[in-house]
Structure formats: C-alpha cells, structure tokens
C-alpha cells in the first residue's frame, strides 16, 4: 500500500509540475497535499494499535477527503486535455470521473461517513464484507482501468496532432 501511495504521490507531483492553467494548478495543489497525507496514512496503517476515537474519526474523514481528491484529480486531467485541444480524451476523462464518483466516492464515502457518525455517537463500527469483499475487488479495478484507457487516448491524441 505504501509503495502504491508513493507511486501515486510521485506521479501527482510530476504531473502538477507541467503547469497548464491556474485552476489546474490550484486543484492539483489540493491533490498533492492529499497524496502526501495518503502516504503517511498507509505508514500509520502498518502499525496495528487501538486508536483513540478522535483519531478514528479523523481517519474516516480523511478517507472521504481522499475520495474527493481522486475525483478532483480526474477533473483536473479533463481540463488539461481541453487546454491541449484534445476533445476525445477530455470526454474519456469525464467518463473516468463518473466511474470514480459512482464506484468510489459514493459507496465508500457513505461508508466513511457512517464510520464517522458511529465514532462521534460512541458506537463501534465494523464493516466486514468477508468473501463478498473479494468479489467486489474487480469492480474497484474498473475506474482505474478506465484511467489507463484515458491515458492511452491522450497519448494517441497527442501523437495524431504531432503526425498531423
């Protein structure tokens, strides 16, 4: 997890170095901050220890912020494509954004919100999906695969422009 988070962080920093426009830079700044915090959070998750309720609440809230950051990232990439005059890849990123909202932000966000409410109201919440969780795994891969597809479309779009 930490390795993956570091990869994402480096990728995000490299991307935001390619400054396009003000709103892209602003949105990417938010994504950068979250990506660093995600790395720290995965390191924290290595240590299994009972956490005070306030920290549990903070971790839940942070999870929610992370989902928002992922969506923000996709929107930033759409702007990036629009700025470069790549309309088809921009449409593709729009679809990637929708997938992340439907599959990540909505269900996971609700789960984290429920966790947050549970902590505040002093109950312990434990979501255990069991074997069903494994079946859900391919579903979570879908938006990521589409992210890859969008990237490939960007590449092809750029190549088409270069070759005329």
């Amino acid at each position: 997890d930490t390795l993956g988070a570091v990869l994402i962080m480096v990728g995000v920093f490299k991307l935001s170095a390619i400054a396009v426009q003000d709103r892209f830079v602003t949105l990417m700044r938010f994504v950068k901050v979250v990506s660093v915090l995600v790395v720290l959070n995965t390191i924290r998750a290595h240590f299994i220890m009972p956490l005070p309720p306030l920290v549990v609440a903070a971790v839940n809230l942070f999870g929610l912020v992370t989902q928002v950051a992922i969506v923000a990232f996709c929107v930033a990439m759409r702007w990036f494509c629009e700025e470069a005059g790549l309309s088809w890849p921009a449409e593709s990123w729009k679809f990637t954004t929708k997938l992340f909202i439907i599959i990540y932000l909505f269900p996971l966000g609700l789960l984290q919100l429920a966790g947050l409410v549970a902590v505040i109201s002093g109950q312990s919440s434990n979501v255990n999906l069991g074997p069903a969780g494994l079946l859900l795994l391919p579903v979570f891969v879908v938006p990521l695969v589409h992210l890859f597809v969008s990237t490939s479309r960007m590449k092809r779009g750029a190549e088409t422009i270069v070759s005329g």
């Binding site: 990869l7 994402i8 490299k14 390619i18 990521l144």
Partner: peptide, 22 residues
C-alpha cells in the same frame, strides 16, 4: 502537445500505484 506527452509517464505511475493500493 509536448505537455501531454510528458504527462503520460506520471499518469501510468498513478495507475500502477492505484492498482497496488486496492
């Protein structure tokens, strides 16, 4: 166009990172 080409590698990194995080 140049900036798009430069964006491909970091995007691929983010994809693999995301895959590792699932």
């Amino acid at each position: 166009v140049d900036s798009v080409t430069r964006a491909i590698t970091p995007l691929r990194m983010i994809f693999w990172g995301g895959l590792l995080c699932i």
